[in-house]
Design a protein around this nucleic acid. Structure first.
Length: 350
DNA sequence: AATACGTGGCA
DNA sequence: TTGCCAAGTAT
């Protein structure tokens, strides 16, 4: 049972467990070894925001192969980076990634303090602490969703989130060691993702079970979270306008939903309401199917309409893109699904 | 403080 | 199938 007095043994127990059980990850140095390249740590931390390790791995490999250094990334065209990010979600991360790379390249390297890191676009409290600890060996209190869960259980904090944030941070501060703070942070995250899981935690395998205030009192119920709101369902349309083996693609506005990404033209649907239903040009539109796609705060039912042998796109802005290279267009997942439907409908006619 | 912002995996 | 959840940040 953890109290302020019994916190002292937790770091050593957790680090000993980490020495044996650390996951090998492409952006991580081995336990006890010198820190990994700050560029790789930063890039991985941005990619990992609200995103699973499994989803990140192929993107991390692709980015580091194509842009091995922050200077290389800073020199890349914004649209190339956006296209490479397509499918990973939360596209403001990609926009901020390019901005931050420019700042870092300009100043000649990454800041090595939490405060300096926090000033980079896309780097918040969590990411600044994580990079300071993992890449620069500084003591920093690193609190992500894993740490929130582990700490809420260790100290049996049953105040609902997000109100419990301050208490959880205080608990995390109490158990964060001065040495190996980066390994400690990664150990907490490994523990949270593999042992102290949201459902059915494996307490029998937990190195901190003897320290855990929730061990005998249903740890699974912690942390307590506020109820989710139901998502509205919106109706919208996307338009597949084809001419001589090419499809008309547009680029979305730089801010907001899927901001800055290449896309199919649509009828103006959004989280706030349905689309107008009006196509960009008159013609013999045929329905290719409906994509149902869940965003964070709403569901879109997107009807995909296609027009063969278009004379004009009917749109001032955009470009003809070869259909056989549609996978290279960098469409976010919603529009990649819509494109698959349109191509399937097209092939049924051939 | 509350909301906007993606996606895929899992039970 | 539906809902929950993930190494959060910006406003």
């Amino acid at each position: 049972m953890t109290t302020r007095e019994t916190c002292a043994q937790i770091p050593a127990r957790l680090l000993a467990w980490y020495d044996e059980h650390a996951r090998a990850l492409p952006w991580r140095s081995a336990p006890g070894e010198p820190p990994a390249d700050p560029y790789r740590v930063w890039l991985s931390e941005i990619m990992l925001q609200q995103t699973t390790v499994a989803a990140v791995k192929p993107y991390f490999d692709a980015f580091t192969t194509r842009w091995p250094t922050v200077e290389a990334l800073a020199a890349a065209p914004q649209e190339d980076v956006m296209a490479a990010w397509a499918g990973l979600g939360y596209y403001s991360r990609a926009r901020n990634l390019v901005k931050a790379a420019g700042v870092v390249a300009e100043r000649g390297g990454f800041p090595d303090t939490e405060e300096g890191l926090r000033a980079l676009p896309g780097v918040g409290a969590y990411t600044a602490a994580a990079i300071a600890a993992i890449a620069f060996g500084r003591r920093a209190v690193v609190v992500d969703a894993n740490v929130e869960r582990v700490v809420a259980r260790l100290f049996a904090i049953d105040t609902p989130l997000p109100g419990a944030r301050a208490a959880i941070r205080e608990g995390a501060d109490l158990i964060t060691p001065d040495e190996r703070s980066g390994d400690f942070a990664q150990a907490m995250m490994d523990l949270g993702s593999r042992i102290c899981t949201p459902r059915a935690p494996n307490c029998d395998a937990c190195p901190l079970a003897g320290d855990c205030a929730a061990r005998e009192h249903d740890p699974e119920r912690l942390p307590v979270k506020a109820a989710k709101k139901t998502k509205p369902v919106r109706q919208g349309r996307a338009y597949w306008i084809e001419r001589e083996g090419a499809v008309w693609l547009v680029r979305r506005a730089p801010q907001g939903m899927l901001g800055g990404m290449r896309a199919l033209p649509d009828d103006g649907w959004s989280a706030a309401g349905d689309g107008s239903g009006d196509p960009p040009v008159d013609g013999a539109w045929e329905e290719a199917g409906v994509v149902r796609h869940t965003f964070t705060h709403f569901v879109i039912e997107l009807t995909v309409l296609r027009l063969e042998s278009a004379q004009e796109s009917g749109l001032a802005q955009g470009e003809w893109w070869p259909v056989e290279r549609i996978d290279e267009a960098g469409l976010p997942t919603l529009f990649a699904k819509a494109a698959r439907l349109a191509i399937a409908a097209r092939e049924r006619l051939l």
